[in-house]
Design a protein around this nucleic acid. Structure first.
Length: 265
DNA sequence: AGTTAAACCTGGTTGC
DNA sequence: TGCAACCAGGTTTAAC
């Protein structure tokens, strides 16, 4: 269940037990997205520093005699989950348990039926192979540096539909398919906003544009779109979609017409 | 450069 | 009941 909230819940669940634990052994199951990148035995003896998160990736720093000894970059993919099995001998791994990090306090076990997940050893978070994977990630959604202005500017540079931009994570990380849909609904933004914009403009073009008082084409003719507008200039009239009275509100010094009933918030 | 499609896997659900 | 087709929480990689 791995979008940002699920990954963060996982991190909070393992960070405590893992911090200061000493690796006793590591066990691999079937191949995941990438090979581990080191012999599992070389992890033994390292101390786990805890658990950090970047986007949907988890990072488990490792140390030897207080010196950095790389770390493990984990991703849960589509079907992955982590379990903390406290105590000595963990239960026998099931057919979908593809990685065990056995420590002196318990075992961290990756369960991932579809195996889109990954466990990747990297000498540091800012070195290959971890760094290139994190490099393309956008802002953390709760980062104060992600101001409305910056968010807006980043979105403006993109031409793909808003839903695709959210999923792609290069503007802001964390939203997967569920939360992208939910966030767009909460903001009452159509996932294909760009397509809606294009079709609206194309229809207006076909009708010669909108003539309120001034506009005329090069032959002095008037446009006809204004009579087809669903909401513009129609405050108080029934919404063509749900029948509720259309509203007018000033936003950014401009009259904004909308339906408060079916365009939520 | 930026957007889209294919690829990686398994398992559950749907439809014939 | 059996089996094919399709869908599922993601993201890299290759291709327009």
């Amino acid at each position: 269940m791995p979008e940002l909230p699920e990954v963060e819940v996982t991190r909070r669940g393992i960070a405590g037990p893992l911090a200061g634990a000493q690796v006793v052994a590591a066990r691999l199951g079937k191949p995941l997205r990438w090979p581990l990148g080191c012999a599992p035995a070389t992890l033994s003896g390292a101390t786990v520093g805890g658990a950090e998160r970047r986007g949907k990736y988890l990072w488990l720093p490792l140390a030897r005699e207080a010196r950095p000894a790389g770390g493990l970059l984990l991703h849960l993919g589509m079907s992955g989950s982590l379990a903390w099995l406290p105590g000595g001998a963990a239960s026998e791994p099931g057919p979908h348990d593809h990685f065990d990090l056995v420590t002196d306090r318990g075992t961290l076990r990756l369960h991932d039926p579809r195996r889109f997940g990954a466990v990747l050893w990297s000498p540091a978070l800012d070195a290959a192979p971890a760094a290139p994977l994190l490099a393309r990630l956008g802002a953390e959604p709760f980062d104060p540096a992600l101001t409305p202005a910056r968010f807006h500017a980043a979105l403006q540079r993109r031409r793909a539909p808003i839903k695709a931009v959210l999923l792609d994570g290069s503007v802001v990380v964390g939203a997967g398919n569920i939360y992208a849909c939910e966030a767009l609904f909460a903001a009452a933004i159509h996932p294909a906003l760009r397509a809606a914009l294009r079709s609206t403009l194309a229809r207006a073009l076909a009708l010669g544009g909108s003539t309120l008082r001034d506009f005329s084409d090069v032959h002095g003719g008037a446009g006809a779109f204004q009579s087809q507008a669903a909401v513009y200039g129609r405050a108080g009239q029934p919404c063509p979609r749900c029948g509720a009275a259309l509203a007018r509100r000033v936003m950014a010094q401009r009259s904004t017409y909308f339906c408060a009933a079916c365009q939520r918030r």
